[in-house]
């Protein structure tokens, strides 16, 4: 019976020939697989980034609104005008606050999902976290405008619960309060936190899931309290996830231009400034210079994170 089967099987066509080709030249397959995405990344993504950078070194003729295509640093100098600096600082503070807010809210949820949720409850968790992402972003933001409005659900609920005093006290805090939640920086913050929360929970949960249960037991075994375990073991090990999540929340907040248009005080954020400068004012150089700001901030942020050892557990 064994004599019937040949030692070398016959080639069955193109698929076998290709398999043989890739087997003899393993790098060829890699090249075939990587070329399209690298082209995409290199030409489309980096290319547009380079074009953006180039634009930021042009300036605009203020009256006609036409771009003067001559190299100048004038546009960057404009960033340091008081009102533009305000925009940058306002955006930075909001992004930081949103990131911290998201992290604080996301951690218990992610921790529960990573440590305790099993089977059905895990599915419920994923569904619960992802569900808000499925509905239109605009619909969510408009819904929040109504929820937060002066004559909206929260005001109504606060009145019903006899908490109007509390709401008014919060709204009277200078800097974050306002006439109503919907027209206050606090409202903008709440909507940002809501919209970007899933982007914090998911990487956090993935990072926490990778922390073996025995690590936590070892910590307790060696005498650590829960708080000590959290500080010295869980947090450092979950840090890459927190950083990944914060990159999302931070950069998404910095780039967003819809939410501050609909909820808040009308004070500009970088995203809104970029949107208006390039879309409605036609000032592409200043828009580009503004757009470079988040990139620079993110680079600095990542460098600090790396120096602080946030990626050591990777």
């Amino acid at each position: 019976m064994t004599t019937q089967t040949p030692a070398i099987l016959p080639e069955r066509g193109l698929a076998d020939r290709l398999t043989a080709l890739f087997w003899r030249h393993p790098r060829l397959l890699l090249a075939v697989l990587l070329t399209p995405p690298l082209l995409w990344l290199g030409v489309v993504y980096l290319g547009s980034l380079a074009a953006l950078l180039l634009q930021s070194f042009y300036s605009i003729d203020e009256f006609s609104g036409l771009v003067k295509q001559e190299f100048t640093l004038k546009t960057y100098a404009e960033l340091f005008r008081a009102q533009n600096l305000d925009i940058i600082i306002r955006t930075l503070v909001m992004s930081a606050a949103v990131t911290i807010g998201c992290a604080v809210i996301a951690f218990p949820i992610a921790y529960y999902a990573a440590r305790f949720a099993k089977g059905k409850w895990k599915a419920v968790f994923y569904l619960g976290v992802m569900l808000p992402l499925w509905s239109s972003y605009l619909v969510k933001v408009y819904a929040w405008k109504l929820i937060l409005a002066k004559e909206g659900i929260i005001t109504w609920a606060a009145e019903g619960a006899g908490l109007s005093m509390v709401l008014n006290a919060i709204l009277s805090i200078p800097g974050i309060g306002g006439n109503s939640l919907s027209t206050s920086p606090l409202g903008t913050f709440l909507v940002f936190v809501y919209v970007w929360l899933p982007y914090m929970i998911l990487p956090m949960q993935a990072a926490l899931e990778r922390v073996p249960a025995s690590m936590l037991e070892a910590s307790a075994d060696l005498g650590a309290s829960r708080a000590q375990t959290f500080r010295t073991v869980i947090l450092p090990l979950a840090m890459p996830g927190v950083i990944a999540g914060s990159i999302f929340t931070f950069s998404l907040t910095m780039g967003d231009y819809i939410i501050p248009q609909i909820v808040g005080t009308s004070a500009r954020f970088i995203g809104l400034a970029v949107y208006q400068l390039q879309g409605t004012a036609g000032n592409i150089p200043l828009a580009a210079a503004f757009a470079v700001v988040p990139i620079v901030i993110m680079v600095i942020y990542l460098m600090i994170a790396k120096r602080k050892g946030a990626f050591d557990a990777l």
Binding site: P212, S214, E217, A218, D221, G223, A224, L237, A313
Partner: peptide
């Protein structure tokens, strides 16, 4: 609770803190 028992464990996977 475990942290107050003067008993220590060598874990099967050692559970050394990687960071």
């Amino acid at each position: 609770p475990p942290n107050r028992r003067n008993v220590n464990t060598v874990f099967q996977d050692y559970a050394l803190f990687p960071h």
